[in-house]
């Protein structure tokens, strides 16, 4: 029985358009029940022990679904989950049509001649607000990068929506330490991906601090984690 089903999924996948192979999953673009859909397949990673692989893959599929729902309930835009197959670890998600990653957006705004500083600052502010809201819900994203944030243009709105994606490494926690590390991960990804954006990231953090009720303890932890990095002895 199970075999029949996985045949169905694998046959379906063979006709879908492979968009990319991330570290976590293969990502396909397809149609599901008539809707433009992104299919995330967490295929077995043969480099790791099968017991570890199954544990991680299952946990991440479940966490992705849980955190998406939690975020949406709090009014944070994330793709809608249409269907989950926990045996092949496939998630069918709403495709955010006509969207652009924040990463690509910043990269194009940083091109010489593009004087979009004020607009980028506005975006940094919005990112800070949304992350504050997410952390206030005790959702830790676990893999914050500018590639995991999408801008969805809505013709009816002047401002585009900010959509968070890729919740595979997410989990629930109220600890300031976990939230601080979440921001630290973003800071490193942000600054290494977008050289010379230190002041932009500062704006993001400021807005985070101003938006979250519990930001003081989180920012304190962020400073601690940064210091740990700098103080590490790095011998050998």
């Amino acid at each position: 029985m199970a075999q029949e089903k996985s045949m169905a999924v694998s046959e379906f996948l063979s006709n879908a358009e492979l968009l990319k192979q991330g570290a976590e999953a293969r990502v396909y673009r397809t149609k599901f029940l008539g809707k433009p859909t992104i299919l995330k397949e967490r295929f077995p990673k043969r480099y790791r022990h099968p017991v570890l692989d199954e544990k991680l893959t299952h946990r991440r599929t479940v966490q992705e679904v849980r955190s998406i729902l939690r975020c949406r309930k709090a009014g944070i835009s994330t793709p809608v989950v249409y269907f989950v197959d926990y045996t092949t670890h496939c998630i069918f998600l709403e495709e955010i049509v006509g969207s652009l990653t924040v990463r690509d957006h910043i990269a194009s705004a940083q091109q010489p001649g593009s004087c979009a500083d004020a607009e980028l600052e506005q975006l940094a502010k919005r990112i800070g607000q949304i992350l504050a809201k997410m952390h206030d819900e005790d959702v830790i994203h676990g893999d914050l990068t500018t590639s995991n944030m999408l801008l969805r243009r809505r013709p009816e709105n002047k401002e585009s929506d900010l959509v968070l994606i890729d919740f595979g490494l997410s989990y629930n926690s109220a600890l300031p330490e976990d939230k601080g590390v979440d921001l630290y991960v973003l800071e490193k990804a942000f600054l290494s991906t977008h050289p010379n954006t230190e002041s932009l990231f500062e704006k993001l953090l400021k807005s985070y601090a101003a938006s979250s009720k519990r930001s003081a303890a989180v920012i304190k932890k962020l400073d601690e984690v940064r210091l740990r990095g700098r103080k590490r002895s790095m011998v050998g």
């Binding site: 022990h49 017991v51 893999d143 914050l144 590390v181 979440d182 630290y184 991960v185 490193k188 990804a189």
Partner: peptide
Amino acid sequence: QYVELPYTVKGMD
């Protein structure tokens, strides 16, 4: 024998 141990990945960290 594979003994299960904590596994802590945070993004690229």
